[in-house]
Design a protein around this nucleic acid. Structure first.
Lengths: 336, 336
DNA sequence: GCGTTAGTTGAAAACGTTGTCAAAATAAAA
DNA sequence: TTTTATTTTGACAACGTTTTCAACTAACGC
């Protein structure tokens, strides 16, 4: 077996042209027909495949894009899938990193990604890395933020209308007769959590309902937090009649608790969740949810990023997408 | 803002040494103390970060590893997470690709990965690309197969004992009194599906139970297939009393049908699934499942691959891992 | 035919590292 | 000291592409 991959030089020799000509052929420039034929023949005969690494060194574009998310949960995995397709179609590959909501891990991943000279980074950030991100942007790494916003950064963004999505959900809950509505928040250091909480607060005020501090649970995004919060709410002497969860992970924790306590959603406790993972519709009853437009997010992400790379775009752009309310059995009329 | 990243040459100039010395420093070789100090100072002053692309071109090792799976479902996403960590810890990054069980897409992804000069590929393959994979191996790309085996390929493997896992499940089903057990298979072009089916067939025979062809549903891995198969089984005049699903996607389709038909698992129909996604334990009743050791798979994957890259390993190795049977409410005593 | 123009080509210099080799500096031995 | 062994260094050639620039060809109109 002949090791050492054939290079453009081998092709050039075999086709009896200069390397530059082969390079031009590879990049789709005009080539005299006779040469083109010989080059094509040589390439397929040698099984030549251009070395992207060498190309990257010369062109300063690796044609690879980084994806840095907190964790590869159902939401981010779905984004990943769509992304891989969209990017591949444009000749880009995807490098994946995760940080588990830890600023330190995030900085490390950022470093790793940067020293790999990725062309752009898609970032679902956590707070506390503002300055680090700004440094990268200043160092000329185009960043597209999504999911969680970092206010001051000069980057493209694909955001979801968290506030409106939550507001709509709360309004519907109230329509169903609920007035004491528990709210389980994620980590308020993240804009996503803040916006969702704001959506809840605004709507309650708007509808003239009292805001009860004890019914607002502020901790982190973990499943166990959802579990604990739900227990705390349910064990109150004056429990809420419905609970809104700021993410499906929290809701999942809640379901876990309810299952253990033999409480049936939509009967013993009405619940609504932000995010709509596949399995919500499989549960009996199904879980009412604010569905993020996952596919659209991923597509916008790819679109924004690629257009920035290929064209010469200056000003940061923001795409905001709306959520979809999915009414299922876990939310029903408040019984009295 | 000074564009153009600082290079090793800039560092060398500033520290007043030769580039070679800086390179040696970066690679942890011995350096005279005085030089080392000056180099360190220069590096941090310039914010220098070694250009991995250039390094890769010279060393012929990109320090990146490809992951090619059919789809980023819960199973593969979990693998992805663990993998990213393990690889990162060893200085490798992960490039992700998927093929959706299509041989054509798979070959394309393989090409893309190969021309990026990845150091190794982690591959959950589909059939029909045997020769293509062999070509890559011959071309010196180390491949580690997992999930689905490709019999003739000279590669490392991390496999799960599909046959034994299924056999155990079937045995338990029989212990619960079931004798007519439906089997919903995935695509039999894939070894995983074949092994699971064999586990079922062997066990039935072993226990002296008849094998009823009409209760063996052979199609693809899709959710809709699980749905259709379940309906077909349930609508028979002589339905099975229990069904085994060859993957959680199929089972999910089955659940979808049952939910629509108001059939309760573990009561109207007993079911067991291969794979144990998170949400199986949230359903009421929980779904009985054969759980793959996802984390161990990912770890072995990283271990095998890295050890092959760093040391000089010749013979292909295979790691086989056992599954764990999780008994939940969806499997119970056959009522008569 | 001949000049002009537009399109193709070859030669050679990058890109930022690492690795080789011989020379220089240091440490150890005499 | 001087000699010998060891470590560390600098210069420079790779690695496989793209790009620039000047030289060549072909095509066209007169």
């Amino acid at each position: 077996m002949n090791h050492r991959n054939p290079t453009i030089l081998d092709v050039a020799k075999k086709a009896d042209v200069a390397v530059g000509t082969v390079s031009r052929f590879l990049n789709g420039r005009n080539i005299r027909k006779s040469n083109r034929d010989r080059i094509e023949a040589a390439i397929s005969e040698l099984g030549f495949r251009a070395n992207i690494v060498a190309r990257a060194m010369k062109t300063e574009r690796t044609k690879s894009i980084g994806l840095l998310v907190p964790v590869f949960d159902e939401f981010n995995s779905a984004i990943l899938s769509v992304l891989v397709d969209e990017l591949q179609a444009n000749g880009y590959s995807l490098l994946t990193f995760h940080h588990g909501h830890q600023a330190k891990a995030m900085i490390e991943a950022l470093e790793a990604a940067a020293s790999r000279r990725i062309d752009a980074l898609l970032l679902s950030a956590t707070e506390g890395i503002q300055t680090e991100v700004e440094r990268q942007v200043a160092g000329d790494l185009p960043i597209t933020l999504f999911n969680n916003d970092l206010p001051e950064v000069a980057a493209d963004r694909v955001l979801v209308n968290d506030r409106a999505g939550t507001a709509q959900a709360v309004r519907r809950m109230v329509e169903f007769g609920h007035e004491r509505i528990g709210f389980v928040s994620g980590d308020l250091f993240e804009s996503t959590a803040r916006n969702r909480l704001d959506g809840y607060l605004d709507t309650m005020r708007e509808l003239g309902l009292p805001i009860v501090e004890e019914l607002i649970w502020k901790q982190d995004w973990s499943r166990s937090n959802g579990h604990v919060a739900t227990r705390a709410f349910c064990e109150r002497t004056d429990p809420p009649t419905a609970i809104f969860y700021s993410s499906y992970i929290l809701a999942t924790g809640g379901l876990e608790y309810m299952r253990g306590a033999s409480l049936v959603p939509g009967k013993d406790m009405h619940i609504v969740s932000f995010d709509d993972p596949d399995y919500f519709s499989l549960l009996a009853p199904g879980i009412t949810a604010v569905a993020q437009p996952v596919k659209a997010v991923a597509q916008s992400l790819a679109e924004l990023t690629i257009s920035r790379l290929e064209n010469d775009i200056d000003a940061p752009r923001t795409v905001t997408l709306d959520c979809d309310f999915k009414l299922r059995g876990s939310l029903g009329l408040k019984k009295d």
